[in-house]
């Protein structure tokens, strides 16, 4: 793609702008995940953490759909935003998301693509593992939380996986076309 366009210095400012704006697709996975994170701050007034971990699900789904566009460092940055949105110590979600992205990347590289139900099971495993990691990281940050109360969130997150996949699949078809 880069080879087919003239060098940047030979472009007019307008062409240059169009060239850069033409890369908007690279930001799609990050923006969708960011939107999911913002959705998680929705006013669901329940006295327990039960809202599904949409941000983590977004990371997982995009790491399987577009591995190149959801590298661990991007997951890290999204996790920082999540930490600030949810008033958690900086680094809890950041580390958790980055580890999840890294896990998915190496898992996919080794075992290839799967059926939907298998991915669902893996996603549930990743969410449960992430809950355990969050529990440990919160303790490391000096603000320990009880573990059992997080079980509900793991459950709702597992149930929320199909809708998130549907949403990301829809965005994927619109933005990237039918591929793979």
């Amino acid at each position: 793609m880069i080879g087919s366009v003239p060098p940047l210095r030979l472009m007019s400012p307008r062409e240059r702008r169009r060239y850069w704006i033409g890369h908007w697709r690279l930001a799609v996975p990050a923006l969708v995940t960011l939107a999911l994170l913002l959705l998680m701050t929705a006013p669901v007034l329940l006295p327990m953490p039960v809202f599904p971990q949409l941000g983590l699900l977004g990371i997982f789904v995009w790491a399987t759909f577009q591995p190149g566009l959801m590298p661990p460092w991007l997951a890290f940055l999204l996790g920082l935003v999540a930490d600030m949105l949810f008033a958690q110590p900086l680094g809890v979600n950041a580390t958790g998301f980055a580890v999840a992205a890294l896990f998915v990347r190496s898992f996919e590289a080794r075992y290839g693509h799967h059926a939907h139900r298998f991915d669902w099971a893996v996603a549930t495993g990743v969410i449960a593992g992430s809950a355990l990691l969050t529990w440990q990281l919160m303790a490391l940050a000096g603000r320990p939380v009880p573990l059992l109360a997080m079980g509900w969130q793991v459950l709702t997150s597992a149930l929320a996986y199909p809708p998130v996949v549907w949403l990301c699949g829809w965005v994927q078809r619109r933005a990237f076309g039918l591929r793979q």
Binding site: P43, F86, A87, W135, V145
Partner: peptide, 13 residues
């Protein structure tokens, strides 16, 4: 305005 229920930290805005 809103109380997060998606996080281990229980806060409201």
């Amino acid at each position: 305005v809103s109380a997060t229920s998606g996080s281990v930290v229980r806060t409201a805005m």
